[in-house]
């Protein structure tokens, strides 16, 4: 018997964001739920970023440090390595600015960002150290130093969005808008930023995701709701979503615990990579567009999966 394919008639779509200076890398633009090509268009594949720190990370597990042996203390070499590993985007984290670490000056951070940007030919995400006041100062200088490069900078929060938004507007960047696991807070921040005249297609939503086993379901449902909202015409939820998966997945006990500590969990290498990969691919099903990862093998595996998911399933 013939089955009539059930298609939703969505009235709107996710906004399309350009991630580089010459418009060759874009995300968003979907007019349906994730990967349902039988129903609408999925013009852009989600992109995968690998992290670079401007400060050698001390508490990363060995499995995570190994692929970057020799470059962990050199952000430029590390960034180039990420490109070799197939990252679509390089995500520079200016951790040295943190008052608990080097408390590096905004000028020093800007110089590092410039050096990294000059050394690579892929789009860049640049985030501060997570201390909101300091990030505002740092991003102001970084934004200036990278004028016209159209980077994605952040994270803008309720506390520092004004400075970050102004910097982005003056210097032609896009902004990551972070708000903790609440669709209304997220919407509110997007409204405040667009009221400053930042175009909506220069905002990426960061819902502050949790890893597999550590609250993944909260962000998963918020992202599903935001996507449905976007498809039904809510412009303040129609921004592409960025997921900082690497920092969360590699914090999980299941990723950090060694073979000796948890033999009943199987080999750490396979388990930890799968922790990062499955967190990512699950968020891809909920509507994530930009994923910031840490391990090159995860990038490789997620890419293979996304290539398959981007093949048409039209009836």
């Amino acid at each position: 018997m013939a089955v009539t394919i059930a298609k939703e008639k969505w009235t709107s779509k996710v906004g399309e964001m350009v991630l580089d200076a010459d418009s060759s890398v874009k995300v968003g633009g979907e007019s349906t739920l994730p990967f349902l090509q039988f129903e609408g268009d999925i013009p852009n594949r989600p992109v995968l970023a690998l992290e670079v720190w401007d400060l050698e990370p001390v508490d990363w597990p060995e499995i995570l440090k190994a692929p970057f042996a020799g470059v962990l203390a050199d952000p430029v070499a590390w960034a180039k390595k990420n490109v070799e590993y197939g990252a679509d985007v390089v995500a520079l984290r200016l951790m040295s600015a943190h008052p608990d670490f080097k408390n590096a000056s905004p000028e020093d951070c800007a110089a590092t960002a410039k050096a990294v940007a000059d050394a690579i030919n892929v789009p860049m995400i640049i985030t501060g150290c997570g201390v909101e006041e300091k990030d505002a100062e740092v991003l102001e200088k970084v934004g200036e130093a990278l004028t016209g490069k159209n980077c994605l900078i952040g994270c803008a929060t309720e506390k520092n969005y004004k400075t970050v938004t102004a910097t982005a507007m003056v210097n032609g960047h896009s902004v990551i808008a972070s708000s903790p696991l609440d669709i209304n807070l997220s919407k509110q921040l997007n409204i405040l930023m667009t009221e400053m005249n930042l175009p909506a297609n220069r905002i990426a939503i960061d819902p502050l995701v949790g890893a597999l086993g550590y609250g993944i379901e909260y962000a998963y449902s918020i992202m599903e709701r935001a996507r449905i909202g976007a498809l039904m015409g809510d412009k303040m939820l129609a921004m592409p979503v960025i997921c900082f998966v690497g920092q969360e997945a590699w914090k999980a006990k299941e990723a950090k615990s060694t073979d000796d500590e948890s033999p009943e969990w199987g080999a750490q290498e396979r388990r930890s990579i799968l922790w990062e990969v499955l967190t990512t691919t699950t968020f891809a099903q909920a509507g994530g567009s930009i994923f910031v990862l840490r391990h090159p093998e995860s990038v490789k595996q997620v890419k293979v999966h996304l290539d398959k998911m981007m093949e048409s399933n039209a009836y």
Binding site: L212, E264, G266, A267, R270, R271, L278
Partner: peptide, 8 residues
């Protein structure tokens, strides 16, 4: 393999 099954 528990490394496969635990995440799932």
């Amino acid at each position: 393999d528990p490394a496969d099954v635990l995440p799932l």
